[in-house]
Design a protein around this nucleic acid. Sequence first.
DNA 1: TTGTACGCGTTATCAA
DNA 2: TTGATAACGCGTACAA
Lengths: 335, 335
Amino acid sequence: MASIHDVAKKAGVAKSTVSKVLNGYRMVSDETKEKVEKAVKELGYIPNSYAVSLSKKEFRRIGLIVDIRHNRQFVDEIGMQYLTGAFEQSKVCQMETVTYFTSQFDEMPADEVAAYLRAQQINGLIIFDLSIENLNFYQIVKDQLFYTVLVDSPIANQKTSSVSIDHRKAQYDVAKRTLQENIYIQKILYIAGGKSGYITNLRLKGINELQKEMKFELTVTYGDFDEYTARSIVFEYAEDIDIIICASDLMAIGAVNALKEMDIFRPVCGFDGIALMGYTKILMNTVRQDFKGKSIRAFDEMKRLMEGQSGRHVEIPYEICKIDYMDIIKKYSQK
Amino acid sequence: MASIHDVAKKAGVAKSTVSKVLNGYRMVSDETKEKVEKAVKELGYIPNSYAVSLSKKEFRRIGLIVDIRHNRQFVDEIGMQYLTGAFEQSKVCQMETVTYFTSQFDEMPADEVAAYLRAQQINGLIIFDLSIENLNFYQIVKDQLFYTVLVDSPIANQKTSSVSIDHRKAQYDVAKRTLQENIYIQKILYIAGGKSGYITNLRLKGINELQKEMKFELTVTYGDFDEYTARSIVFEYAEDIDIIICASDLMAIGAVNALKEMDIFRPVCGFDGIALMGYTKILMNTVRQDFKGKSIRAFDEMKRLMEGQSGRHVEIPYEICKIDYMDIIKKYSQK
DNA sequence: TTGTACGCGTTATCAA
DNA sequence: TTGATAACGCGTACAA
C-alpha cells in the first residue's frame, strides 16, 4: 500500500503538503496541487482510515443495534430493509458501520456495554425498535453516552433523535378505513403487540381514540407480534366478534389462516405492509412503512447530531393500502 | 477514554511494560503484572483497536460482499441468515466485519475495487453467491489479492476457499425423490436459475444425470430465480408435462400458484428450504440448506486461510424435506 | 506558499 | 525483568 510518504516523494513535496491538497486547503499553488494529484492517481493512493481517525481523534463509527427477538418470525424483510438502507447510506455519509445484536449485551450493565462500544471506536448508535426490556440501552440513551438515533421509539434529548411514523394516527387510520368498508360492526377484537412496548402503547392509543369516537365494543388482547399466538387468540375469540384489527401483518396473517380453518369470515387488517401478506391472497388493509427510508433518514439525523445540533422527533409518512400478490412478484421481477 | 499512558502512570511503570502484560509476554514479574492488571481494571481500560492495527501493521477486517440482485425477490430470509451468522461468528473469531453490496462496485475495475477495500483495512473477503457477471470480483479471486472465502461458488486456490453444499447431488436427490413419489412420469419440466451461473450449471448437471439414469423426456427452461418468470413458464409449458422441478423455492412457489390458477395439478419441487414455502400450504420436496451455518463455516475457513493454510473446497450437508406451515410458525413462536 | 516537528495510542527493538 | 525510543500513517500548529 502506498502511503502519504510515497506520494510526497513522488511529487517532490513534503508530506504535509500532500495532506493539505487532499483535505482541500486553498493556500496551495495550482502547480503543486497538480503535481500531488498526479502522484496520487499514479500510485492509486487512498488514505489509511485508521491513521486518519487516530490523528484527528475523531471517529465516525456507527453501531447498528438490532433486536433480533423482535425481528424473529419471518419478518426478515423488515430487517433486511433496515440493514440495506443503513449500509448504503453509511457510505454516502462517510461513516463506518458495525452491526450488533442486542442479545450479545443481554447480561451486561449499561456502563460495560458503553465501554465495549467505545473501545471499538463507536461514537454513534442507531437503535432499531428499542424494547423496554433492554434496560441497558435505555440507560445509555438516557445518560446520553453516545449520539443516538432511535428508530420507532419515541425518545429524544440533546444527543438523541427519534425517527418514526405516527403510530397512533396510523393505527387509527387503518382501523377506521377497515371499519368503514364493513358496515354493521359492533364488536372489535384488537390484537396488540408485546405488553408495555413503546409502539404497542402508541397503537393502542389510536384504537382507543377510535373507540371513543365510534362507540364499538372493544376487546384487547396481546399477540406479542407472533403469528402463532395471534392464531390461538383468533380461535378463542373470533366467533363472538365482527372484525379483527392486528398490530402487525404477521399477526394478521396468523389470524386469516385461523379464520380459514374455522371456516368463518371476519374482516382483518394489519400493520407494516410486508410482502408476505400478498401470499395469503386475501386483500387486507395495512399501514405501509418505508423501512429502508427510515434507516436512511436515521443516518441523516445522526449527521445532524454529530454536527452539534440538538436531538428531535422526526416523523415520516406512511400509507394505508392493500398488498396484492401479483403486484409483489411483478415488482421484484422488474429489476 | 483511558489510554495505555494512563494505565502506566497509575501502575507506576512504563507504557511498554503495560503492553507486555496485556499481550501475554512472560518475562514480566508477577508483582508488576498484578500492579498493571489492577490499574487496567480500575480505569476500565480497553486498547484502542485502531492504534493496535496501525502499530502492528496487521488488520483482521473482513469485507462481506453481498450480491443484492440475487437477494432480491423476497429471499430476505436467506440474506438475513447469512448476515446474522456472519456478524455473530465475526465476534467469536475476533474479526471486524464491513458489509458491501456488489452494486456499489459495478462500474469499477478490479484493481480499483481492491485499492478501495485495502484503504479500508480489509484483508479478507467473504463473497456470497458470486455471480459470473461480477468480473471484477472474479478477477480479485483469481489474482488472490485478498484471503477469500466463497459461499456457493466452486472456486479454490492458495488463498481462496469455497463453502457449499453439493448442488449437483442435491438437485439429483430432490428430483429423484419427487419422481419416486409420483409414478407414470414421462415428461419433466426443469426450471433452472440464471443462465451460466455457477450454481445453475451444477444443478443442471444433477438433473441431466438423473435423466440419463431414468430416461424421461426433459425440457429445460431458465427462470432466472424469479417467481414471476417461473409463473410465466408454467403457463406456457405445464399442460404438456407431468412434473415440474424448480431450481429454487421461490420459482416453485410461482409455479404452484400458476398451476392453481390453471386449475390443474402437477407435482412440484423446489430448492433452498425457505419458510415462505410453508405459506403456500402445499407440501413440496425441497433441499434445506443451513444458510447461517454456511456463513459461520465461512469464517472458520477465513481463519484457516489467515493462519497461512491453503484454500480448499468445504462441503456442508443438506437435507431433503418438506416445509409445513404449522412447523414454521411454531418454530418462530418458541423462542 | 511550503516544510518541520509533534502528537494520536499502540507495539517492537534494544539497551540498561 | 524493565524502560526509553522509534516506528505505524496521518493531520496540523507553527516556523520559514
